[in-house]
Design a protein around this nucleic acid. Sequence first.
DNA 1: CACTTGACCTGTCCGC
DNA 2: TGCGGACAGGTCAAGT
Length: 310
Amino acid sequence: MPELPEVETICRGLDRLLVGRVIAAVQVDWAKSFALDAEQLQSQVIGSQVQSLDRRAKVLIINLANPSLTTRYSLLFHLKMTGQLVLVKAGGERFAGGHPTESMAAGLPDRSTRVTFTFDNGDRLFFNDQRKFGWIQLVETDQVENHQLIARLGPEPLSPDFTAEHLASRVKRHPKAPIKAVILDQSTVAGVGNIYADESLHLARIHPARPGGSLKPFEIKRLHGAIRDIMTLGITYGGTSFTNYVNALGKKGDYLSRARVFRRQGQPCTALLSRGQVCGAIIEKMRVAGRGTHYCPRCQPWPKATKSKL
DNA sequence: CACTTGACCTGTCCGC
DNA sequence: TGCGGACAGGTCAAGT
């Protein structure tokens, strides 16, 4: 499930491989993944050269230019939960990004391949997506900021615009919503998904189901710092798992293998307490805001004063 | 208006 | 073994 750190890693990895390449052919095997008629495909995509790659929240942006067009277009990619982007070089060398499944290691394309881009040098970019939730859209480059999803995004978590004051103002707007729902809301902060929400709340020692309005100012501040720290860590570790070529894979773990709580229900919390003690309490799982939610009942206790509201 | 749930999909896992 | 159902999670639309 690619979130911001994974998409950032994919973006950095693909940049040097794609910039300068010209799109020679596009094959769409699942129309909903890339809803563009053949005429537009031919006139606005084929023959375009990749100028640069970008990322906004969880959206990967490939900026194009076509010498026969005055308008510049961009391809937007959203991988949702199971999307992958796999670049197979003409020589067979592979770069993969996205949710790692066995399809990466096997021959490509496979049955989850929805769209295939072929470049002028023979390299191929496969958009694989088991569950078909992901999409590709063609947008005019100077309209990207007005795109229905992009336009509603809040600040990037690692940008100066994401401040504790901003987070506090968002919480104030939905004081009864569980704090986890507030930070999953992409208009609060762009790019935080289920994994990093759980991880951030654990680092901040805040119970995910607490109404945002019950958080003290120092807790908001701590959560703000935790989100930034966790996203930074995610980019660091996301790099170890996704920047490798697939056939060179098999080393290092991704962020998930270092997770504090995510998918660790039933296992002991590894948080360090004072004097080098390890917490050791058993991680629990519950549903918050309709999502599987993992937390440590000891590190993230329900505050006594508001316990009755549970 | 504030907040929650369902739809979109497929594959996997669990209990019967 | 097979079958039904829950679950996985990002985002938007629809519901309470």
